[in-house]
Amino acid sequence: MRRLYLVPLLGLMAGVLLGFVLKIPIPAAYVKYFGIAVLAALDSAFGGLRASLEKNFNDRLFVTGFFSNTLMAAFIVYIGDGIGVEELYLAAVVAFGVRLFRNLALIRRHIFRSRGWE
């Protein structure tokens, strides 16, 4: 069970390190879209963690979900700006935010249950 967390944690650290080292600039106009995309990516990551804890993790589903969520999130916000409904990003924020918290809650509950603390 411990080993299950090892690789994701290493990956996460590597990514964080890379982010500090590479310093890829994002044009100011696209920062908003990248923000939503990051939110979607976080949601997908926690979704994957929950799935693995629930033992129904499917890596293909995870990878496709990760990319499609990320891209779609940014795209929806972009479309919203394009059609003059800038508030559309709120929909993405709310949707991903709610899912994020739900995933976190489920993960917490799962850990409690598996340790018998509940």
Binding site: V7, P8, L12, G15, V16, G19, A41, S44, A45, G48
Partner: peptide, 9 residues
């Protein structure tokens, strides 16, 4: 994927 998330974040 985690690395990607970390990097993006």
């Amino acid at each position: 994927i985690c690395a990607l998330v970390g990097f993006l974040l």
